[in-house]
Design a binder for these strands. Structure first.
Lengths: 128, 128
DNA sequence: CCTTGACCTTCCAGTAACTGGAGGCCCTAT
DNA sequence: ATAGGGCCTCCAGTTACTGGAAGGTCAAGG
């Protein structure tokens, strides 16, 4: 299967697939003309990575997850720990964003948003 | 005022302050020995930027905000629009993270996390 | 006077995860 | 033969810093 087809069917951009090869996630065969030729295993891995990335796992976490996935003797506890750590990261990010959102939302509300120059948002940023 | 002092009093790392100079936010004077010498205006700007950054505005947004701040004839509507756009970005990020969090949280809950290899998290990632 | 340590300087490289573009080969259809 | 689309590699750029090397400066202590 050519890279274009894989991109279309997996939803992962061509460039990204090449990048994933470059960082060692996949090692597709090459045809005589140098074109990459993906097999089911490659497709499967790409789908795995795509799904993990969509859940916010970093590339390195994906690498770890993939290794666990391919290790038949893994303990699910190891996977769970990884996922829980990531969950904690996500929660921290959400909390940080919410705090920004609350402050910013207050500021936006307090700003008239008309053609006069006086602006509580700028005043806040300026520490006044 | 030396860069170290500015860093301490503003909470912005020395490296970051130099970077902010490099990208044109500030233009501190230099002493005879080449050391940067920050005045109140620089301090004020740095505080402004630091606050805006802590609210998640990008560097380019900070630049725009700073320009509005220094433009006495600005309309508060322009500031408000910028802030509202940013608020929308934040909300989108929060929504995306929440969706990740929910999915991931379900997966974590469904995983026994013991020494057996069977793992719903990996199964999900593998599309099963 | 010399050394030591804490400052400060510049410049270069690296981070995360792609993304865009240039230059060029390959394949198929007209 | 040529036009188009798909494929290839390699290089550079993105965001906002951050780390480190190599070296100048300054104040205090011996």
């Amino acid at each position: 299967m050519n890279i274009g087809q894989v991109a279309k069917s997996s939803g992962i951009p061509v460039k990204t697939i090449r990048y994933y090869e470059e960082i060692g996630f996949i090692r597709p065969d090459r045809d005589a003309n140098g074109y990459r030729n993906f097999d089911d295993r490659d497709l499967h891995k790409l789908a795995f990575i795509g799904r993990a990335r969509s859940l916010g796992f970093t590339i390195e976490e994906c690498r770890a997850l993939l290794a666990l996935y391919e290790d038949q003797s893994r303990a699910s506890a190891d996977v769970k720990r990884l996922a829980m750590d990531h969950l904690k990261d996500i929660d921290a990010k959400i909390a940080a964003l919410k705090s920004m959102r609350d402050t910013l939302s207050d500021l936006v509300t307090s700003c008239a948003g008309d053609d006069r120059p006086d602006c509580p948002i700028l005043n806040d940023l300026a520490g006044r």
